[in-house]
């Protein structure tokens, strides 16, 4: 048993989650609403103290494979949110009640990490037409409620091809 396994390295002790530190600094600057050196200093102090004190709750860092694909995925999701809401507005305003074909759909998952499944669930709920409701007990299937669907297999294929494939390139 080598000693370095028990005692983490210098970087890991003082900066256990560098991505969380960066996000906290950006959040603090946005909350202060001003670009000043004092705010940045307090942000850096907070960004270092909070991950150290809460470090026991998340022992491992999430593995993010490619930041550029993450930004591209965010852009795609934003585009889908804006464009497809128009279709849901049309459905809510103009479609009579009994012509809505609402249905429950089960989507089998390829992602295994909790972060990946969480991002997929949030994306499915944000894009109009679908709300993610439940996860199976072994974590391999997602229960999705669709507002108006005539072809279930096409919906499942679209979710898997458009979102899950892209998330799989970012998170495991």
């Amino acid at each position: 048993m080598a000693d370095s396994e028990l005692r983490p390295s210098y970087w890991r002790r003082w900066l256990p989650h560098p991505l969380l530190t960066a996000v906290l600094i950006c959040l603090w600057m946005a909350l202060l609403n001003s670009y000043s050196a004092g705010g940045l200093l307090v942000g850096i102090v907070l960004g270092m103290v909070i991950p150290i004190y809460t470090g026991h709750f998340w022992p491992e860092r999430p593995e993010i494979r490619s930041p550029f694909k993450a930004i591209a995925f965010l852009a795609i999701v934003m585009f889908d949110v804006v464009v497809a809401n128009i279709q849901v507005a049309y459905l809510i305003l103009f479609r009579p009640r009994d012509q809505l074909r609402s249905r429950w759909v089960a989507v089998p998952l390829d992602l295994t990490s909790p972060e990946g499944i969480t991002v997929l669930t949030a994306t499915i709920t944000l894009t109009p037409g679908t709300v993610a409701s439940d996860l199976s007990a072994d974590g391999r299937t997602l229960l999705v409620h669709c507002l108006d669907v005539d072809d279930e297999a096409a919906t499942v294929r679209r979710i898997k091809h458009r979102y899950e494939r892209r998330i799989g390139e970012i998170l495991p």
Partner: peptide
């Protein structure tokens, strides 16, 4: 307005969830 109109018009709770979570947020 459309998001909350969906709350009034749609028939069941699961379909009523779609309005507020998407249209109102947008």
């Amino acid at each position: 307005f459309v998001g909350s109109f969906g709350l009034v018009k749609l028939p069941s709770l699961m379909s009523r969830l779609h309005g507020p979570s998407k249209a109102t947020t947008l």
